Amino acid sequence: MSDLTIDSVATTILDVPLVRPHKFATTSMTAQPLLLVEVRTRGGVVGFGEGVVPGGPWWGGESVETMQAIVEKYISPVLLGRRVDDITGIMRDIERVVAHARFAKASVDVALHDAWARSLGVPVHTLLGGAFRTSVDVTWALGAASAEEIIDEAQQKLDAKLNFSFKLKMGALDPGEDTDRVVRIARALEGKAGVRVDINARWDRLTALKFLPRLAQGGVEMIEQPTPADQFEVLAELNALLPVPVMADESVQTPHDALEIVQRRAADIIAIKTTKCGGLKKSAEIAAIAKAAGIACHGATSIEGPIGTAASIHFACSEPAIDFGSELFGPLLFDDELLQTPLRYENGQVHLPEGPGLGVELNMDAVKTWTRN
């Protein structure tokens, strides 16, 4: 085994263009900024992690710029001179110098797992207990575009057998117009594909009480985070009211949040983003709480690049609690391929990459092309 001592930590910001604009409730993006975190050992092994948020700091308060500053100034000194297999101790010590900043911590957690697994010559999922499956279902997110655009894009995905369920972004339009738009889409896709919605915590209680039943009656099969993240009691009220599952996303960023959801019966599904949760280890803690309570888990996305997506695939394929599919489609939105061999998407699923570490190798020419000057 090579020397596992961490010799250096480096960061790089990329701005990767998207194949089309991706619209959220409050913003839209045409390129996705990524923070690559590189951990190198004295034995010459390199592990990569990825810091990424969905569309900027509006979601959780972090950005690639804040993540880079935190990793370089505060987290790197904790890593240097430590062994990459000391992940538990390292992440515990990081908590002592950096509060919150879970997206930044996730990038380091994944880089450590990648480097350790590569040092051992095994895939990351081995460190997580081993893969019990080799692929996971992928739902395609269609943004907040018009009904015509969305129906056309969904039909293209169905024809290519790439996806069989779709999630629509809501919250950017007048709630009545937005509801009519989504119901129209759900009816157009009825019998062909499942339709879900994500309101990104943008509706208040009264708006949700008025329009969510109409969505459920109109054919929407799942409703994600309709109201503000900290209003657990409102989410519980809506979950009890609606005949379709409610998924908590913004409301669950820590194991304690997951416990709150369980105790209040505030959701039927928890969206686990390895990024928002602070990495693979914290994601496993949240999954354990949900599994013990009989609550389903969904492998959610922050529109990660291939490094973050590969990490989430390893997690989803080694964690039985992820039993409500995934949205690990991020690299398909990118207008350039960052890997030497792309991740494999087919028949509505993404497949577990093979090989040591995350099982992927960056195309350094593409990385150089999109590195921020």
Rank of each mutant, 00 (worst) to 15 (best):
R264M: 03
I270G: 00
G294E: 10
A284T: 09
P255S: 07
T274K: 04
I289D: 13
A271H: 03
I269S: 00
L280P: 12
K273G: 02
R265W: 00
I261H: 10
A288V: 05
D268H: 11
A284C: 02
G279M: 08
K273Q: 10
T275E: 09
A300N: 09
V262N: 13
G299P: 03
A267G: 06
L259C: 02
R264A: 13
A287T: 03
I261L: 09
H298E: 01
S283F: 03
I261C: 09
V262S: 05
R265V: 00
A284K: 09
K276Y: 05
S283W: 10
G294K: 14
L280C: 05
A300P: 00
A271L: 03
G294F: 11
A292K: 04
G299A: 15
I289P: 13
S283E: 08
T275C: 12
V262L: 07
R264T: 03
L259R: 08
I269N: 00
A287V: 01
I286C: 09
I289F: 14
I270Y: 01
A296Y: 10
A300D: 12
G299H: 12
A292S: 14
S283A: 15
A271D: 05
A267L: 02
E285F: 06
A258W: 08
Q263I: 03
A296H: 14
G294H: 13
G278N: 14
I269E: 01
G294P: 15
C277I: 08
T274E: 09
C297Q: 07
H298V: 02
T274R: 10
G294T: 14
T274S: 11
A287P: 01
A267V: 02
P255I: 14
R265K: 09
A258P: 06
E260M: 13
T301N: 05
T275D: 08
K282A: 05
C277P: 03
I286D: 07
G299S: 13
G294S: 11
K276G: 03
G279H: 12
A284G: 11
I270H: 01
V262D: 06
D257H: 11
G294W: 12
I261K: 08
